[in-house]
């Protein structure tokens, strides 16, 4: 990797980890939500570094834009503007948290040392070649509407369920 790319990668990775750490340690839910935005932006930058520009743009549009608005609405609905008491109380809560964090770190360590499985590993430059051939978005769109046709159609049913669920929950008089 050229040094500039590496520098940008470390800057974005540091930004993502710092944002995520601050997101889970802030007492105010609003501050947490805003740090999550920072994390999502850093992830979008990492997607761009991985030659997934389209996914990076969608990350900003959908997650940093739309989903975060939803989070902020929930905070406003629940009136969580002021920091409340911590939900992690006592030695039991601390022990459970330490156990979960330890397990996660152990698993992440295993993934890091073994690398991705051969099934999903592609030779260097495959993505770049695909993008030259089919365009940035085409490289995503071709498999989405061809190989993964059924999952794509099922997505619409998932979205339908989300619509019906939101209306049923929010409209009391049906």
């Amino acid at each position: 990797m050229p040094p500039l790319t590496l520098t940008v990668f470390w800057a974005l990775a540091g930004m993502a980890i710092t944002g995520a750490t601050l997101c889970i340690t802030r007492r105010s839910p609003l501050a947490s939500a805003l740090w999550l935005v920072v994390t999502l932006f850093a992830l979008a930058g990492l997607f761009v570094l991985l030659d997934a520009q389209f996914i990076g743009v969608l990350q900003v549009l959908v997650y940093a834009g739309a989903i975060m608005v939803l989070f902020l609405f929930v905070i406003m609905l629940l009136n969580l503007g002021r920091p409340g008491p911590s939900d992690l109380k006592g030695p039991v809560g601390g022990a459970v948290a330490a156990l979960l964090a330890g397990t996660l770190l152990l698993q992440l360590g295993g993934v890091g040392s073994s690398g991705p499985p051969d099934v999903i590993r592609m030779p260097e430059g495959t993505v770049a070649a695909l993008q030259r051939e089919q365009g940035m978005v085409g490289a995503v769109a071709r498999p989405l509407f061809d190989t993964y046709l059924i999952p794509f159609e099922i997505t619409s049913i998932l979205l339908l369920a989300a619509i019906v669920g939101a209306v049923v929950l929010a409209k009391r008089k049906l």
Partner: peptide
């Protein structure tokens, strides 16, 4: 407000 935001997001993803 939440209902409107939710419906917006669903059609946004479409």
């Amino acid at each position: 407000f939440y209902l409107v935001a939710m419906l917006f997001i669903v059609f946004d993803i479409e």
